[in-house]
Computed example of a mutant assay.
Amino acid sequence: MATISVKLSDSTRDRLQTAALHLGLTPHALMVHAIEDAVQLAETRHSLIEQALASRQRVATTGLVVDGAAFGDYLKAKVRGNAAKRPEPMGIENFVASGK
């Protein structure tokens, strides 16, 4: 296992020790958990950004979009167990021209 040194202010170190004590962990274990959570959050954020950029590229390439309100209604109907038809994509020029 690799070792990384982290410099903490005295107040942060004291808070870390108190928090770890309350959780029944060592300060080291609490830091490891905190780092793992932060890395997971960063990876999730990166994945969402990649998906958003891919969606943006798809719209730029195809010019097709789905009305957000109509798609929201579709999802609500599906969650409620109602039959619903997925909204059809439309040209972005029609979407913008309709004022939606």
Score class of each variant (00 low, 15 high):
A84F: 00
L41N: 09
A52F: 07
R58S: 09
A70I: 02
V96N: 06
L75Q: 13
V32I: 13
H46C: 02
V66K: 01
A69R: 13
D73P: 01
A2E: 11
Q40Y: 10
G91L: 14
Q57W: 07
L16P: 03
V66A: 01
A38P: 04
Q17C: 08
V79D: 08
A77G: 06
L30T: 00
D67S: 04
L21W: 09
E36H: 09
V32P: 00
K100T: 11
G72I: 08
L53K: 12
L53I: 07
M90H: 05
V59H: 04
R45V: 07
A69T: 08
F95G: 07
A42F: 00
M90R: 15
A34I: 01
L41Y: 14
D73Q: 10
V96I: 15
R13L: 14
T18M: 13
R58W: 05
G68T: 08
G24S: 07
S98C: 02
M31C: 12
A77W: 02
T62C: 06
K76E: 13
Q51D: 14
A34K: 04
E50K: 12
M31K: 03
A19K: 14
V32D: 03
G63E: 04
Y74N: 04
Q17L: 03
R58A: 14
A52R: 14
A84I: 01
H46Q: 15
G91N: 14
Q57R: 15
P89I: 00
M90E: 13
G63D: 03
D37Y: 06
P87K: 00
L64K: 09
L21H: 13
H33G: 10
L41W: 10
A60P: 00
E36I: 06
K78G: 02
R58F: 03
A29C: 05
V79L: 12
S47T: 12
T12G: 02
A42W: 03
V65P: 00
G63I: 06
T61P: 00
L8N: 02
E43R: 12
S55D: 15
G99M: 05
G72C: 09
V32H: 06
G91K: 14
K100H: 11
Y74I: 02
S47F: 09
R13Y: 11
S47G: 09
S47R: 15
G91S: 10
L53E: 13
P87G: 04
V39R: 07
N94D: 15
N82T: 02
R56H: 11
R13C: 09
D10W: 05
